[in-house]
Design a protein around this nucleic acid. Structure first.
Lengths: 223, 223
DNA sequence: TAGATTGTTAATCGATTAACAATC
DNA sequence: TAGATTGTTAATCGATTAACAATC
């Protein structure tokens, strides 16, 4: 099995593997882990594609960027493919994540039990509102933003969740970048302006709603 | 201004406007509304593109699917373009949304104040856990799932948020479809299997994290 | 008018799919 | 072996971009 796989990174000007392919791997992994938990040992590109609403050809093509993981006539060993995808995505470990913003959403995220077994652990919760500092969220205690730099350094955090009010988001994001955060998951409904090399992903439910309503018959409440 | 715009829908086999274009319109709208709130009256494709990390050509091309909204030499009237995008996306109104799942995430969503001025209102919260029924979330009271069908009918809901545990998600989704829901925003980390014509969008923070870690230098906690 | 920016075209670029030889 | 499914190629399909005439 010769791996044609070479990691794309900041110093590698020409990334060979399209980002859109990388974006599908976590979906494949999630589905495989469900099969695994159900005790299924073998699957194939057709079955996986049916489950995900993706063509089997696309799944095979995507995987082929990283090596050969299947057997002709048989398909894929579920556990083996899981392991390989985890290695490719670098989630065969636990990444420490800091959470900024201890509002309702921050609480929900800090209490969520589903991070750990998929490669992530929230190691600190930060907020600047005096009445929030010291309160408990999940198994953690809210700390003031002044503690953030030391915490990020101590835990070697590279990933942050931004769950602060919109008006504070850009400034907090700037701070995160200054102290060494490389990837931000932003829950504020805003597009951040940050230097090259910082990766930001966004979660804004309203963006999804507005995408949906384009296709709906209009019988909503008039306002 | 001749509109070449015709809505794509279930009965219209060949949709002329790519879904990927539709998906960018809410981003444009979000950015325009921020400009508007800052008192800016005019913008152009270059400025908007810079803010969003998108080429100006793409913005002009996307908009051109729906009509002509700008002036040569000047650009776009911010308020006018907002209004037009809201009309295209059908968010020049308030859509009633039901929320299923009153856990931490459900609470956060029900309490979120940012839906209303972007076209959405949560009109009901449902859960099956006896200890949750009757409790208050945001300005609403949790009701049992048995009340859901009547509620959806009464409010003409077409959109639902699914914020239940993973193991319950597929069954609740089936129920939602049965009672007339057409669009589901799913927070469970799973790909739902639903009939044609039902639109599902997914929010799973871990998918974003795993996408990010592919590009990170690996110095995470070994486990 | 001169300068700026649109809307649109055509070229380029990239992603998906169909098909099939290889092979388990 | 016969049947099934992979990995890969080449063709198709679709999306993005560069360039510019039109025009405010």
């Amino acid at each position: 099995m010769t791996s044609k796989y070479e990691r794309a990174n900041a110093s590698d000007g020409q990334s060979r593997i399209p980002d859109i392919v990388i974006g599908r791997l976590p979906i494949y992994l999630r589905s495989l882990k469900i099969l695994l938990s159900q005790g299924q040992t073998v699957t194939n590109s057709q079955e996986l594609g049916d489950r995900l609403g993706i063509s089997s050809a696309q799944i095979r093509k995507d995987l082929s960027h990283f090596g050969e993981f299947g057997k002709q006539g048989t398909g894929y060993d579920v556990a083996y493919l899981c392991k390989q995808l985890e290695k490719i995505l670098q989630v065969d470990c636990i990444w420490p994540v800091v959470l900024v913003g201890a509002g309702n959403l921050g609480h929900a995220l800090a209490s969520y039990a589903g991070f750990e077994n998929r490669g992530f652990r929230i190691v600190g919760v930060f907020d600047n509102q005096p009445d929030k500092i010291g309160t408990h969220v999940g198994s953690l205690q809210v700390e003031p933003l002044t503690q953030l730099p030391a915490h990020v350094a101590r835990h070697h955090c590279r990933i942050a969740i931004l769950a602060v009010p919109t008006k504070a988001a850009q400034n907090v994001a700037n701070l995160l970048v200054e102290i060494g955060i490389k990837s931000i998951l932003c829950y504020a409904p805003i597009t951040l302006n940050l230097p090259e090399g910082i990766r930001v992903e966004y979660i804004d439910p309203v963006i999804h709603f507005q995408h949906m309503t384009y296709y709906l018959e209009k019988d909503c409440l008039k306002t």
